[in-house]
Simulated assay, not measured.
Amino acid sequence: MALSNNTNFHSSTFFLLGIPGMEAIHIWISVPFCLVYLCAILGNVSILFIIRMDSNLHEPMYFFLCMLSVADLIISTTAMPKILSIFWFHDREIYFEACLVQVFLIHSLCSMASGFILAMAFDRYVAICKPLRHSTILTHRVIKNLGLAVVFRGILLFSPQPFMLRWLPYCRTNIIPHTYCEFMALIKLACAETRICRMYSLTAAFLTGGLDFILIICSYVVILYTVFHLPSKAARLKTLGTCGSHVCVILVAYTPAFFSFLTHRFGRHVAPHIHIFVANIHLLVPPMVNPMIYGIRTKRIRDGFVQVLTSHKS
Results as ranks from 00 to 15, higher is better:
123 D>S: 12
185 A>E: 11
310 T>G: 06
165 L>A: 10
205 A>M: 09
30 S>D: 08
102 Q>E: 15
79 A>S: 08
232 S>A: 08
272 P>V: 06
153 R>W: 11
37 Y>K: 02
141 R>I: 09
234 A>W: 10
295 G>Q: 01
31 V>P: 07
19 I>E: 01
150 V>R: 02
46 S>T: 13
298 T>K: 11
258 F>R: 05
274 I>M: 12
176 I>S: 01
239 T>D: 08
222 V>P: 04
270 V>L: 09
102 Q>M: 13
91 D>P: 01
127 A>L: 06
305 F>V: 02
74 I>P: 00
137 I>V: 14
247 V>M: 08
174 N>T: 05
248 C>G: 14
310 T>E: 15
97 E>F: 10
306 V>L: 14
182 E>G: 08
196 I>V: 14
136 T>Y: 04
17 L>T: 14
130 K>R: 13
109 L>A: 01
87 F>Y: 13
133 R>G: 04
245 S>H: 00
220 Y>L: 07
280 N>G: 06
45 V>C: 13
97 E>K: 11
248 C>Q: 08
240 L>T: 04
11 S>E: 11
4 S>K: 10
260 S>L: 07
41 I>C: 13
125 Y>W: 14
177 P>E: 12
94 I>S: 00
255 T>I: 14
187 I>V: 15
169 P>C: 07
17 L>Q: 14
67 M>V: 04
111 S>E: 08
42 L>S: 13
105 L>G: 05
234 A>Q: 14
8 N>I: 06
307 Q>I: 05
227 V>D: 05
252 V>Q: 04
